[in-house]
Write a protein that binds this DNA or RNA. Structure first.
Lengths: 152, 152
DNA sequence: TCGATTTTGATAATCGTTTTCAATATTGAA
DNA sequence: TTCAATATTGAAAACGATTATCAAAATCGA
């Protein structure tokens, strides 16, 4: 992430905070910074593990609360990828779908306009008013299918 | 569902039961029959409400346990459509995806080979080995968008 | 600094689902 | 049919992710 984008995201977050009349705190700053700096799709648990290394007293609930704030301000999206725990991804300006590795849990984002067009066609045929969709392709990423092939 | 298909499903269920060395019980028969006879995507709660009308003593846990058996034998599929509770659908011989009405929770199944082909192409491009996928289109069904249009 | 208000961490509550367990039902063999 | 071994049941407890509660602590404008 560029420095500019980083700053822009902070500005959006702070705008949201102040607009809601909330105060800024050390704990939240640590969590938000860690979230922004990390590009993987993290679970609450994983993010908590990371912020604990910076401030070991930060509680689990505060991570949940901060991720909620980030979601509200449009900077994070909660995703459920077939696991029990949700994962949080960075908001992007473009819609995308996901390839999900069933072995290493890596998540690859992709866009495909042709598919989107076909989805709209399906909806039209059923006189269905589309609001949003979810498309998740589960399988094995390049690395993991190589490992599997070698019987590891 | 035709009478033949109904019998065929029962045969598959009984085959699975006996293969696992399980016993057949009155409660399970009631639950399985009710599931086979009902074509909607039911939650455990909804199915339990129905079987209770036939045998009011049937417990919640037994419904869960029986749906697990049906899933194992390939006759039911557990689906999570953005609600807290899972829904169970009848297994079909063809793959399909879903249109989900956010208002009345009606679920419409559809097939689209063109989309499937494009999905495979996306995977190939990412050297991703596809195992299965999930595509859910959320919005409003014909009836519900009409209602919304009239401000109901 | 003060005081009103928000935030925190710990813990309890929630909700769907699964497990436990003692009582009951099923089944094959005698 | 009776018996004994084994599976099943319903009720309730346990579970795991998430959310709510609450008293103590932190923030921030005046």
């Amino acid at each position: 992430m560029t420095q500019d984008l980083f700053k822009e995201k902070w500005a959006i977050y702070e705008q949201h905070i102040s607009q809601k009349g909330l105060k800024s705190t050390r704990q939240r700053d640590v969590i938000v910074e860690e979230f922004f700096g990390e590009h993987e799709h993290l679970t609450v648990e994983e993010l908590w593990q990371r912020v604990r290394k910076i401030d070991s007293k930060i509680g689990y609930a505060t991570v949940y609360r901060t991720l909620k704030l980030l979601s509200e301000s449009g900077l994070a999206h909660k995703r459920q990828f077939g696991e029990a725990q949700a994962r949080f991804e960075h908001a992007t300006d473009h819609h995308h779908d996901h390839l999900i590795c069933m072995s290493c849990h890596q998540i690859i984002e992709f866009e495909n306009d042709e598919i989107e067009t076909l989805q709209e066609r399906v909806c039209k045929k059923h006189k269905f008013q589309l609001v949003h969709h979810k498309m998740e392709l589960y399988g094995y990423c390049e690395k993991c299918s190589a490992k599997k092939g070698r019987g590891i």
